[in-house]
Amino acid sequence: MAGVEQAILILNCGSSSVKAAVFDDALREVSRMEVTEIGGGARMDGRPVAAPDHRAAIEALLGRLPARPVCAAHRVVHGGAGLVAPCVIDAQTRAAIADAAALAPLHNPAALAGIDAVAAAAPGLPQVACFDTAFHATNPPEAVDYALPARWRAAGLRRYGFHGISYAGLVETLDPLPARLLACHLGNGASLCAIAGGRSVATTMGYSPLSGLVMGSRTGDIDGNAVLALAAAEGIAGASRILNRESGLRALGGGSDMRALHASPEGRAAIDRFVYWAVRHAGSMIAAMGGLDAIAFTGGIGENDAAVRGRIVAGLAFAGAVPVHVVPAREEAWIARAARACLCPKGAAEAGAAFAPARDGP
């Protein structure tokens, strides 16, 4: 890692883990690290480390950096209705992220723990937040509003959409960018996005990452009264566990590893349903754009499972023959560039020129 003069530290904090990537002053990734099992038996890159909490984990990561960090940039799942662009974290921003924690109780508290840990371990180090919901702030009101009483819409019950950092990176990668792009982020979490003129106009996830496609362990779309039936039988916590962690491909096929699913009759039946709902929801995305000029796949399944990609493309043949792109997800790289632009707006153009992500063709 010789020659690294400054480092941009990218952090993705979970409840018991911190994933980190380091980019140099030319926005090239130079290292990747991870602390897991924070609070009990913690390990950093597979080796034992003393990390009873996020602060200790962050301190351990800072001690392994190849250069002095100029900032720490965080992936934050939910920005609520107000945080719709990457921003420098100050007291007001932190409070807004905390307010949005009720909308993403499994994600935002972990991001806040990481933000606070950096502030404690490296006082004065600038921090930037990038939000997975922000890319979808351009959705029109008719796409985001639930048909609920006004007081509940005012309380924040609406569609937000997720995977926005992935979609934003995809938009910057495709050159030229198709006018009407169906973007498919397919992984353990899966969603589709209708991107018209570079902007999100519709997406399959909603108030939470639960809705839309069949996913690794999430149901995807399910009738509200079915949710009420689960809650009546299992309690709210039990229903949440079933819907988010025990459903999807795991429930239909016995697991969420696509390679294993391809190898068994039950798994293949689960994949049938995954493909069916991807195609069905894709039809609504195409309708939201008024047509289709290209399809792009990203995410673990989207990038690596050619059979699933082929079946989805075949199911969309009614929309016409269009180019199909496979784009490696580079969310950390997009966050690094966004962080630099936040801290040095005049250098944003230079940062953009320095960052040239790889692109796969049709």
Rank of each mutant, 00 (worst) to 15 (best):
A2W: 09
G3M: 10
A7Y: 02
I10N: 03
I10W: 04
N12A: 07
S16M: 06
S16F: 06
K19G: 07
A21I: 05
A21C: 14
V22H: 01
F23W: 14
G40R: 12
G41R: 05
M44E: 03
G46T: 13
R47S: 14
A51R: 01
D53H: 13
A57M: 03
I58H: 00
E59L: 03
C71G: 03
V77L: 13
A91N: 11
A91R: 14
T93C: 13
R94E: 15
A98Q: 13
A98Y: 07
D99W: 07
P105I: 04
L106G: 06
L106D: 10
L112V: 12
V118R: 00
A119D: 09
G124D: 04
P126N: 06
Q127S: 10
C130K: 02
P140F: 08
P141F: 10
A154C: 12
R159V: 08
G169S: 13
D175S: 14
P176H: 10
L181S: 02
L181I: 06
A183Q: 02
N188M: 10
A190I: 11
A190E: 11
C193G: 06
I195F: 05
G198E: 07
V201H: 09
L210E: 01
G216R: 00
A237F: 03
G238A: 12
I242R: 15
L243Y: 02
R245H: 15
E246T: 10
L252D: 02
D257H: 04
H262I: 02
A263N: 02
P265N: 05
I271P: 00
W277H: 13
G283E: 04
G283S: 08
S284L: 13
I295H: 01
A296D: 01
F297I: 03
T298V: 08
I301P: 01
I301K: 01
V308M: 09
R311P: 05
V313A: 12
A319N: 08
V327I: 14
A329I: 05
R330F: 06
A333E: 12
I335Y: 07
A338G: 11
A339H: 08
R340G: 13
A348F: 12
E350C: 13
E350P: 04
A354M: 13
A354Q: 15
P357V: 09
D360S: 12
G361Q: 11
P362E: 12
P362H: 07
